[in-house]
Design a protein around this nucleic acid. Structure first.
Lengths: 105, 105
DNA sequence: AGACTACATGTAGTTCATCTACATATCAAG
DNA sequence: CTTGATATGTAGATGAACTACATGTAGTCT
């Protein structure tokens, strides 16, 4: 599944991943792939811009580190990010309820 | 909730509504509002283009009628539309599973 | 009779989250 | 030395959504 299939939920998924612990971009992509049982396969061209958006919005904060000689930008949830995650979970719950009501599932 | 909140699911919702019985555009908008417990409130500028797309794709067929002196375009599911609905339901199921796996809900 | 709302159909231009295609850099494996 | 994995991205294109507005007809209220 690509991000188009989860349109609008990517931010929530990223925030939920960071709730588990701080991570750098590439690790977030890998975590989402693994947590979803290899169903999500998001390109970096989708995820890195989303990380930038979330950082600009104040939901996450990033710091540069070096791991095995490679630059890494490690991200962590902020207080605002926790709130954004709660809102995202609420939005997802609403979507599920609306879809359930109309589709009868 | 607007269609942005259900991005990508609008077609499936329309097809599911037409599975209940043929309907004209305005009635589809009303049905979605009622079935969702007033949570969906879709503008005609979103729904009418979606109906055109589905008709062009062969998923629904439309005919002009006159009801109470007003023109109505009444839509019905086609065989292709039933298949598209099944696929949409499968996509929705996948999304739910992926979100559940990552969010733990 | 006129204003307003509901019932009907739309279209145009804008927005922006996604895509694909690439780019650069460094380490590990063969 | 080459290739793949691990890292970071950006640019331009796409298309499903939005808002704003248009036209037309019937019903309701003053």
């Amino acid at each position: 599944m690509d991000a188009d299939g989860i349109h609008g939920q990517l931010d929530t998924l990223i925030l939920a991943t960071l709730k588990r612990g701080e991570a750098h971009g590439y690790a977030i992509i890998t975590a989402l792939k693994e947590l979803s049982g290899d169903r999500l396969d998001l390109p970096s061209g989708t995820v890195y811009p989303a990380l930038r958006r979330l950082e600009r919005a104040g939901s996450i904060s990033g710091t540069w580190t070096v791991g095995e000689g490679r630059r890494r930008r490690v991200y962590a949830l902020t207080e605002d990010g926790l709130k954004a995650l709660e809102k995202g979970l609420g939005d997802w719950r609403s979507l599920r309820e609306v879809m359930g009501a109309v589709l009868g599932t």
